[in-house]
Design a binder for these strands. Structure first.
Lengths: 188, 188
DNA sequence: TGTACATCAGTGAACGCGCGTTCACTGATGTAC
DNA sequence: TGTACATCAGTGAACGCGCGTTCACTGATGTAC
């Protein structure tokens, strides 16, 4: 799409990798991962249909790249969490801010399972979560507390994104609602 | 597949609707809803490729029928729950027993949203969940307690089915683990 | 008990479409000397 | 500063495939009389 000056089409795109990723995130956010096709993404990026394969070999390669990026974004989002409740709030916020990443990250069937970038990113995000759990003092079983927090945040985020909480929660700010739930789980 | 006596192929299948649903649940459980094609299901049911359309107009019709059946199964599973924790345990058990239904039920993008059977089944399941919440005595906000329980159970079930809990929980029985989590949420 | 007819369930050929993949190519960029 | 060459990014034509959809059809079942 980018041209040097006039209407001339540059032969090289400039950043086709990023353009394809962005187009893919758009498609996923509106129609889900199943709606992805490399040809369609090429069309959206204004590039010939075989070009995307140059950067991501195929659909699985593209989805793996998205998942890895998602775990890195999640790790960054969790980095400065004050406590476990705050980490949960940040988890929910991440899901709302990056619904397409979120939809891809937890479906291993969509990825190349052994991709080193993906594994590394997932580990980084897991480390941040574990750090947040360790902040909770006097927990009998920290691992169990971690699973509880993760389940609560993940379930809430999932139900929210799939529009299954419109009834019971109504118009309250989702992050506030989640804070209340976390309060029930981690009573001080 | 069913024949009256010998190897003769019956012209009428007998219960093609059920056969297609079963084949679809197999495919979804192993490869996800995206892998569904009516032609493939016809093949699995041993029937000509245009036959399934007779029962479910198209993919969305089929997925809507699966979602409706799922909500009915869920309603039945929740019917005799002793308390909210027990309802959560049953929710998790339902997800493990019927992973394909579970994968379809909460993705509205896959359904015909206004299908009356689906709406009715969803309402029945929702009613059962609300009943379980009302059993919890002395809850300040029953709706919030309901969302908390639902989020916890839904998140735990989702992470479990997507193989994201293999690390932290290890080989413990998932229902036991969930019971511990619910204990944290609803301390007596 | 028998016949005629309507309805229903499934068939099979045909169609057009979008997809992924391959491949020889060409234009642009970077590097060595 | 200039030239030669290697590498890289994207092109565009071609292919074969599985898909959904349509349609005239046929075999089986149910119902009225």
């Amino acid at each position: 799409m980018t041209t040097s000056s006039g209407g001339r089409r540059a032969y090289h795109h400039g950043d086709l990798r990023r353009a394809v990723l962005t187009a893919a995130l758009d498609v996923i956010a509106s129609d889900g991962p199943a709606a992805l096709s490399l040809r369609d993404l090429a069309r959206r990026a204004g590039v010939s249909h075989a070009a995307p394969a140059h950067h991501f070999k195929d659909r699985a390669g593209l989805l793996t790249a998205i998942a890895a990026e998602g775990f890195d974004l999640l790790a960054a989002a969790l980095a400065d969490a004050a406590d476990l409740t705050d980490a949960g709030v940040r988890y929910v916020r991440f899901a709302r801010d990056h619904p397409a990443h979120f939809a891809v990250m937890f479906q291993p069937g969509l990825h190349r399972p052994e991709d080193p970038d993906l594994l590394a990113a997932r580990t980084r995000a897991g480390d941040r979560l574990r750090e947040a759990v360790s902040e909770v003092a006097g927990q009998d079983d920290p691992r169990l507390a971690g699973v509880a927090a993760w389940s609560l945040a993940h379930g809430f985020a999932t139900l929210l994104l799939t529009h299954n909480l419109t009834g019971p929660v109504g118009d309250r700010d989702p992050e506030d609602v989640f804070r209340s739930l976390a309060g029930m789980l981690f009573r001080r």
